[in-house]
Simulated assay, not measured.
Amino acid sequence: MPHIPRERIISLPRTDIAGIDAGGTKTHMRFLDPATGEVKHVQARSADYDSLEHLFYGCFDMAGCLPRSLVAGVAGRPGRDGDVRITNHPQWPTFRRRAFATDLEMSLVTINDMVATTAGVADLDESDWVPLTPEVTPHPGPALLAVSVGTGVGSASVDRT
């Protein structure tokens, strides 16, 4: 399992903002390249790490930058304090949001990954939909359900009424 020292992470150039989708199988990070301002992406295999903290370190290292602000969608249910145990890796220690953020001098929000997915549904239009039952007349309104089938099965709904 890769171990990236904290000293290496804190020496990285800073970027303003990044987002991480930390799943049980793979993790994606989108970030603003600090040199160009361009949106870039890195991907990691979650099981290659022994904790959410080390997984985040791996993403920062691959990206070559450390965000000042980070939103992390995680496969688990964050508590009120943002601490979370990852559902698909019960052997990992509980991630301590405040300690991690303070140590790296960043603003950090942890949310459930399906909450993040559901928030994005509002940005989809009909060209983004794929009918699963083409013989059934499509619902005239926007999508109301997001389902993610990966290492875990997650679902979320949005009631727009």
Rank of each mutant, 00 (worst) to 15 (best):
V39Y: 11
A75W: 05
C65D: 03
S69Q: 14
R85W: 05
G23F: 13
D33Q: 09
L70Q: 02
A44W: 04
S46T: 15
L70N: 04
V42D: 11
A35D: 14
D48A: 12
F56N: 03
D81C: 04
Y49I: 10
G76M: 04
G58V: 02
L70K: 03
G82S: 10
H41I: 09
E53N: 03
R80S: 09
T36G: 06
P67N: 07
D48T: 09
R68E: 06
P34N: 11
C59A: 12
V42C: 15
G76F: 02
L70H: 00
S69D: 11
R45W: 12
S46Q: 08
L66M: 07
L55K: 07
V74D: 02
P78F: 04
L55M: 06
L66I: 04
T25Y: 08
A18E: 09
R30L: 15
G23A: 11
A18S: 14
H54C: 02
G23D: 03
G37M: 13
L52R: 01
P67A: 06
I17T: 15
D83C: 06
D50Y: 07
I20D: 08
L32S: 10
I17R: 15
D81W: 08
Q43G: 05
D21Y: 04
C59Q: 14
D61I: 01
G64W: 10
G19I: 07
V71Q: 06
C65H: 05
G37V: 14
S69Y: 13
L55I: 05
Y49W: 15
I17Y: 14
P78A: 08
G58E: 02
H54Y: 06
D50R: 12
F31M: 09
D21E: 14
V84G: 04
H28Q: 11
F60I: 01
G76I: 04
D33T: 05
Q43C: 14
M62T: 02
H28L: 15
S51Y: 03
E38W: 11
D83V: 00
L55W: 01
T25V: 13
H54R: 14
T27Y: 05
M29I: 08
A22P: 06
P67K: 07
D48N: 15
H54D: 01
F31D: 06
Y49T: 09
L66P: 05
D50K: 10
